[in-house]
Amino acid sequence: MAEAHDQLHATIVGRVEDPLASLMPGASPADVTRTAHVCLAVYKSGLELVLAHEGAERGACVQEIKDVLVRCPRGSSLGGRPMPPPGHPDCAPRRGCLECG
């Protein structure tokens, strides 16, 4: 059973690495793999949170997880600096905008 779990985990990480690599130009394969593992961990942890809530709160949890996952690889490609919130006015992401600071 543990082997099957490990194989599933490796397959999922591999499938996450491909699109991440395009979002992380210039990142090393090790960085892409690490970020894929983090994204999977966030997703798995978030799934528990989503299943523990209903209605509007569940929807809000889903949106928060999506926001984290969208920002995660982009922050990694900027040397770990977080991206501004989606739709943030006047941001210049490639400068590493931290709330336009």
Score class of each variant (00 low, 15 high):
residue 70 V to H: 05
residue 43 Y to E: 09
residue 70 V to Y: 04
residue 49 L to P: 10
residue 50 V to I: 07
residue 66 K to Y: 12
residue 60 A to I: 10
residue 54 E to V: 10
residue 65 I to L: 06
residue 64 E to R: 10
residue 61 C to M: 10
residue 41 A to Y: 05
residue 35 T to P: 02
residue 57 E to H: 06
residue 13 V to R: 02
residue 33 T to K: 14
residue 85 P to R: 09
residue 42 V to Q: 08
residue 46 G to A: 01
residue 82 P to I: 01
residue 57 E to D: 06
residue 81 R to D: 02
residue 59 G to H: 01
residue 51 L to Y: 13
residue 81 R to E: 04
residue 29 P to W: 07
residue 5 H to G: 12
residue 51 L to V: 07
residue 33 T to F: 14
residue 35 T to S: 06
residue 15 R to N: 15
residue 25 P to Q: 06
residue 16 V to N: 02
residue 53 H to D: 10
residue 80 G to P: 00
residue 27 A to E: 00
residue 14 G to V: 01
residue 8 L to Y: 14
residue 19 P to E: 13
residue 10 A to V: 01
residue 57 E to T: 13
residue 62 V to W: 01
residue 44 K to V: 15
residue 56 A to G: 01
residue 71 R to Q: 09
residue 46 G to E: 02
residue 36 A to Y: 00
residue 55 G to E: 00
residue 76 S to G: 08
residue 71 R to L: 08
residue 67 D to E: 05
residue 33 T to I: 08
residue 30 A to L: 05
residue 30 A to W: 02
residue 72 C to Q: 08
residue 32 V to R: 02
residue 17 E to K: 15
residue 52 A to G: 08
residue 6 D to T: 06
residue 8 L to Q: 09
residue 31 D to T: 03
residue 10 A to S: 14
residue 78 L to N: 14
residue 12 I to K: 03
residue 53 H to K: 15
residue 4 A to C: 03
residue 60 A to Y: 05
residue 71 R to A: 10
residue 54 E to T: 11
residue 34 R to D: 14
residue 77 S to N: 11
residue 11 T to D: 14
residue 26 G to Q: 06
residue 30 A to R: 03
residue 78 L to Y: 05
residue 42 V to I: 14
residue 71 R to M: 07
residue 74 R to I: 02
residue 53 H to M: 12
residue 83 M to E: 09
residue 65 I to G: 00
residue 47 L to H: 12
residue 34 R to W: 07
residue 3 E to W: 09
residue 5 H to D: 15
residue 33 T to L: 13
residue 51 L to M: 15
residue 35 T to G: 03
residue 32 V to G: 10
residue 70 V to A: 04
residue 29 P to C: 10
residue 63 Q to C: 07
residue 76 S to F: 03
residue 41 A to C: 04
residue 23 L to V: 05
residue 23 L to T: 08
residue 37 H to F: 01
residue 10 A to L: 03
residue 35 T to I: 07
residue 38 V to T: 08
residue 28 S to E: 12
residue 72 C to F: 07
